[in-house]
Design a protein around this nucleic acid. Structure first.
Length: 576
RNA sequence: GCGCCUGUGGUGAAGGGGUUAUCACCUGAGGUUUCCAACCUCAUGUCCUGGGUUCAAAUCCCAGCGGGCGCACCA
């Protein structure tokens, strides 16, 4: 079997056996959209369930679910509307396409703020030449919208909206509710699994770059002055870490998370524990530990909201692919939403250890004088007085917010010493976010599990998925579909499926060897065979997929272990 | 978006301006004491879509759609 063709063989088996297929194929298909077939959808369900439990088990994290249709304002505040509407231009000589803001970066301070008309003018500058052909004949710029735009409302006056490019905004929208739910104590987090949408220019590489994809994100809200940390010494795995090349560290490390944090490679304690939990999850579902690495973003690669960022990359047929992004989004999102919406409920309260007593000198307006003097402008006068510095230089002229200048005399005010007791303060929480690309993770899970072996001169395929993520728990096989074996098999199937959390299927067609082969191909870890002896003594054979070892057990024991997910323990004397 | 290559049953391939398009595997029905893709009989095909050239197009040409690679893009 040639290694070069492995990707083709894997892709075709995924299609043939109902894991992953192109969407809308009878209409020609749409690039960047895929279907999970009957086998793939089961695996996806198992992976996402496992992910949800992984985080919920932490105790201070809850699950939420929010709409994919998102009003424009939300995405203006988050920065996506600006970021996702880049202007593109084309070289009229050689047809190369560029982002216009990248071209003018040397002649303009803030390229991202330029509008289309300005940009067309700037591109006429002789300084801007095509790096491909050295000409400077640029087409008029066109916006490249990476978000799917839609409108809320069926008739006129639609409110502009977009399909969400990430699930995270849902968690930020629910911050006030989460804050109450957790009885106003940080840290806490919210997770969400759902679809995200990006209208990619050119989706490529099978299911790696999709236009509609499954994301799983955690927003973990923390007090930046008191960031929670976990005991990193519980993990002694050596982790492949690639620091930012400009950070002054070596190019690559293989060290524990604890060590990486101690030497300052991972700077933030909560980021460090998030990296560790990300690693734990990937290992739990069966990603090959040798094919995981964490790469620190260089400063200018970081997203507009992030202050510290690591990618978790997994190696597969397409090379190293970013599958999880771990970012310290700081207070960016909550603060932006506070500014955009005017909401005051996006903050948390931090009590001081000791109440702070502050003595202040303030200008206290005498409203009994100011009122009759300034009449309807009195309110503006009081507001203006609050903003000026305290001194004893009266009378003085001050400017009101409506532009009028008024004279304030010492009779209108009183200079007073006041004592204020502050028991705490409001602040905007920081957010640590791991964002998992579920489709990319499932791709690599299948890639790492796909095993091609040779058996009696023929190639043989085993999908070595572990119990946690296998599409079904077991397949029930009557050796013959007669003599009562079919009846026993049906009984076992019904009984097993009535156990909560257990899913089995029955397969009666073709020879027993072929049925084993089919089960191996879709990654079923156990096959249960009913033969003539089963009728005599209620025993069946259990076959272990990965080494074809068989044991004999009673139906009762088998069902018991299936329910407890402990079939493996029945093979203890056959350790391979 | 641009350039090059490409599209034939579920999968993998062969062929190719002219009756009914070929093969293997898979799948379905039946048979066979059938424990690792055994065997026997039978069954199952929009040659990606649209337009053009032609007496005749799955085949040649053009466009679209899909796939691969390169450039650009991937906040």
């Amino acid at each position: 079997m040639s290694e070069e063709q492995r990707l083709d063989r894997l892709t075709s088996i995924l299609k043939r056996r109902g894991f992953i297929l192109p969407s809308f194929e009878i209409y020609g298909g749409v690039s960047g959209l895929i279907d999970y077939g009957p086998v793939g959808a089961r695996i996806k369900r198992k992976v996402t369930d496992c992910w949800i439990n992984h985080w919920l088990n932490q105790g201070d994290i809850v699950e939420i679910d929010s709409p994919t249709i998102t009003p424009e304002q939300v995405l203006v505040a988050s920065g996506h509307v600006g970021e996702f509407n880049d202007l593109m231009t084309e070289c009229m000589n050689c047809n190369s396409t560029y982002r216009a803001d990248h071209l003018v970066v040397n002649i303009h301070e803030e390229p991202e703020t330029i509008n289309a008309l300005e940009m067309n003018e700037l591109l006429k500058s002789e300084l801007i030449i095509c790096s491909n052909c050295q000409e400077n004949k640029w087409s008029p710029v066109k916006p490249m919208n990476l978000m799917f735009k839609t409108g809320i409302g069926a008739m006129k006056e639609q409110r502009v909206a977009y399909m969400r490019p990430e699930t995270a905004q849902g968690m930020f929208m629910l911050f006030p509710s989460l804050y109450r739910h957790f009885r106003q104590k940080l840290p806490f987090g919210a997770i969400q699994i759902g679809r995200g949408y990006r209208n990619e220019i050119s989706p490529r590489q099978g299911m790696i770059r999709l236009r509609e994809f499954n994301m799983a994100e955690l927003e973990y809200f923390i007090d930046p002055d008191n960031p929670p940390s976990e005991d990193l010494s519980i993990s002694n795995s050596l982790i492949n870490l690639i620091p930012d090349p400009e950070s002054g560290f070596d190019l690559e490390y293989n060290i524990t998370f604890e060590k990486a944090f101690d030497i300052g490679l991972i700077k933030h304690p909560t980021v460090a524990s998030t990296l560790m939990k990300t690693w734990d999850f990937l290992v739990k579902i069966g990603i090959d530990t040798r094919k995981i690495r964490f790469r620190q973003h260089v400063l200018n690669e970081m997203a507009h909201y992030a202050s510290d960022c690591w990618d978790c990359e997994i190696f597969g047929e397409y090379g190293w692919i970013e599958c999880v992004g771990i970012a310290n989004r700081t207070c960016h999102d909550l603060e932006s939403h506070e500014n955009e919406s005017g909401s005051k409920s996006l903050r948390a309260w931090r009590s001081f250890d000791e109440p702070r007593v502050e003595n202040k000198t303030v200008i206290s307006p005498k409203t009994s004088v100011i009122g009759p003097t300034f009449k309807q402008e009195a309110g503006l006068v009081i507001a203006a007085l609050e903003a000026i510095e305290v001194d004893n230089d009266w009378p003085k002229k001050i400017e009101l917010s409506n532009g009028n200048i008024v004279t304030i005399t010492s009779e209108m005010i009183e200079i007073r010493e006041i004592e204020a007791t502050l028991s705490g303060e409001w602040f905007t929480p920081h957010v640590i976010e791991p964002a998992f690309g579920i489709d990319r993770i499932i791709w690599h899970l299948l890639d790492h599990s796909y095993d091609e072996i040779e058996r009696s001169g023929e190639s043989y395929t085993i999908m070595k998925l572990n119990d946690r993520v296998s599409p079904i728990d077991a397949i029930i096989l009557p050796l013959f579909e007669k003599d009562g074996m079919d009846v026993i098999a049906m009984k076992i199937t019904n009984k097993a499926n009535s156990i909560s959390g257990v899913r089995v299927e029955i397969d009666t067609s073709k020879s027993i060897g072929r049925r084993y082969a089919r089960a191996d191909e879709i990654g079923v870890p156990w096959t249960i065979t009913i033969d003539h002896i089963s009728k005599e003594d209620n025993t069946v054979t259990i076959r272990r997929r990965d080494d074809q070892v068989q044991i004999r057990a009673t139906i009762e024991d088998m069902l018991h272990n299936l329910a407890d997910k402990t079939i493996e323990n029945m093979f203890l004397e056959y350790q391979s």
